[in-house]
Design a protein around this nucleic acid. Structure first.
Lengths: 135, 135
DNA sequence: GATACCAGTATCCCAAAGGATACCGGTATC
DNA sequence: GATACCGGTATCCTTTGGGATACTGGTATC
């Protein structure tokens, strides 16, 4: 009675809900930098310049902007030490840790995707060679 | 000998690798729309307008652009049927399915994040009421 | 005859993302 | 005295993402 034949695993309803939920997630995690920054801080607090070196290729302007947004969303905290010159420490909060599983899946997928791209481009190269020197 | 004290679980090396891998992933999944489109197609093939309705709030221009990129990256296939008027069917490939775990984690996180936002804003409302009518 | 559907394309526009470069004031280092 | 570090800000610029609107051609529907 509770079982119907041919009922798709992803009903239209479930699918719509997934889309909404993923949109919600992407809304706060938008752009190239949010997740890389969160990952960089996952192994311990870092200062501004350290963070910039860890994330690589991010400019001061963008890093500064992203940090503000991450702080607003409770992913990190910012603490200023009255040293001379001032030291500023960025630290990930407990809430960042709720992203661990997301990050892990994304990391694993990224690794295998790169492997796939590499294999594909190598095959193309081989095919091109074959085309140039047939038989 | 192979064990060192105070060695962080996320060594600097591991952390850098994670960042690179996640950047690779984000590079192909960029923007608001790629994942929602992939999810929409996960329950079966859809035509252009059906897809547009499923994803909600996406314009024809953007949808068209995103579909081309997704096809280039082997996430979907495009098939034209010579009906009158033409019917075009978009279908997710097996490679899309490798994103299932990523999508699931992102969906779950999105759900709990929204819940959290809701709770927080409700608390703020209550606090405001308290401030207005103390005691 | 007017309207709507289909799968887009074309055009115009705005906002946001992102990048490049310069700069600050104070310290330490060469 | 020149240079570099620190944690950014300021300014200028380009690119991309994204939105709004209009249009097509052939069919079907009102």
């Amino acid at each position: 009675m509770s079982l119907k034949k041919e009922e798709p695993v992803h009903s239209k309803q479930v699918c719509t809900e997934s889309i909404v939920a993923v949109k919600d997630a992407l809304y706060v995690l938008n752009g190239k930098w949010k997740l890389p920054i969160i990952i960089a801080l996952s192994s311990g607090p870092l200062r501004f310049k350290e963070l910039q070196r860890a994330v690589e290729n991010i400019t001061t302007k963008i890093l500064s902007k992203e940090l503000k947004e991450l702080e607003l969303n409770d992913f990190i905290t910012r603490k200023v030490y009255p040293t001379v010159p001032v030291t500023v420490e960025y630290k990930s909060t407990g809430y960042s840790k709720t992203l661990d599983k997301v990050v892990n899946e994304l990391r694993e997928w990224g690794v295998q995707h790169k492997k796939r791209i590499f294999t594909k481009s190598r095959q193309n190269t081989l095919n091109l060679q074959k085309a140039k020197n047939p038989k």
